[in-house]
């Protein structure tokens, strides 16, 4: 079925199909087309869920659940341009539901992901700094954390992030401002130490 999409889709690039093509094929239960959508968007959804769940091991499961809901009913996404926002909205709602059922667990040392660089001393310093920042972010209220994640870490526009949170752009900017103010207050006592740690690593 995907071949029929390919003939009518865009050419060039590693993914010649648009989200619209892939969504249309997914409506027809084309698993290959859906696999391309997964490949394209899973990492973003996973990162947002991970941040919302403070690195909890269930982040993968929640991200998967968002995609399964899309697979079961791709017709819910009326415009392919809204797909990313739809996935993020569903995923963040799933996180909220899960936290409602079970209180959030904080990020444990064993759950911290390292980025693959293997200099032990440098990794330790970086990891301590990262843990301090992660902890401060984890203590933000849920919606402030989501706003910060979407705009700061995932580079979504304010309008796109507001759509995910289902608030106005003004409300999103307010969430962001409060998140940043709270982070400054929390991190300010360790500011010199943390910045020195970053400087030592050449950041």
């Amino acid at each position: 079925m995907l071949q029929s999409v390919a003939t009518g889709g865009q050419s060039g690039g590693s993914h010649p199909h648009t989200d619209a093509d892939l969504l249309a094929a997914s409506v027809r239960k084309d698993q290959r087309a859906f696999a391309l959508l997964v490949e394209r968007h899973f990492a973003l959804v996973y990162r947002v869920v991970w941040r919302q769940m403070n690195g909890h091991a269930d982040a993968e499961d929640v991200a998967q659940e968002a995609f399964l809901r899309l697979w079961k009913n791709p017709g819910q996404v009326r415009e392919a341009g809204a797909l990313k926002g739809w996935l993020l909205r569903v995923a963040s709602n799933l996180v909220t539901d899960r936290f409602r059922k079970a209180p959030a667990e904080t990020l444990g040392d064993d759950d911290v992901f390292v980025d693959g660089r293997d200099n032990a001393e440098e990794a330790l310093g970086r990891r301590q700094v990262a843990t301090a920042i992660d902890d401060a972010i984890a203590q933000l209220p849920e919606r402030q954390r989501l706003a910060l994640t979407l705009v700061h870490f995932e580079q979504l526009s304010n309008a796109a992030a507001a759509a995910v949170l289902e608030v106005s752009v003004d409300a999103l900017e307010s969430l962001l401002a409060r998140a940043r103010r709270t982070l400054k207050e929390k991190l300010n006592p360790q500011k010199q130490l943390l910045l020195a740690g970053l400087a030592a690593e050449g950041r």
Partner: peptide
């Protein structure tokens, strides 16, 4: 703390990476 300092600290936050095999596990579920 200034905005610039906060941005520098935020850049040090953990960047989660998708666990190995996550896409394969999802595709298997699908």
């Amino acid at each position: 703390m200034s905005d610039d300092e906060l941005d520098r600290l935020l850049s040090a936050a953990t960047r989660p990476v998708v666990p190995d095999g996550a896409l394969a596990r999802l595709n298997a579920r699908i």
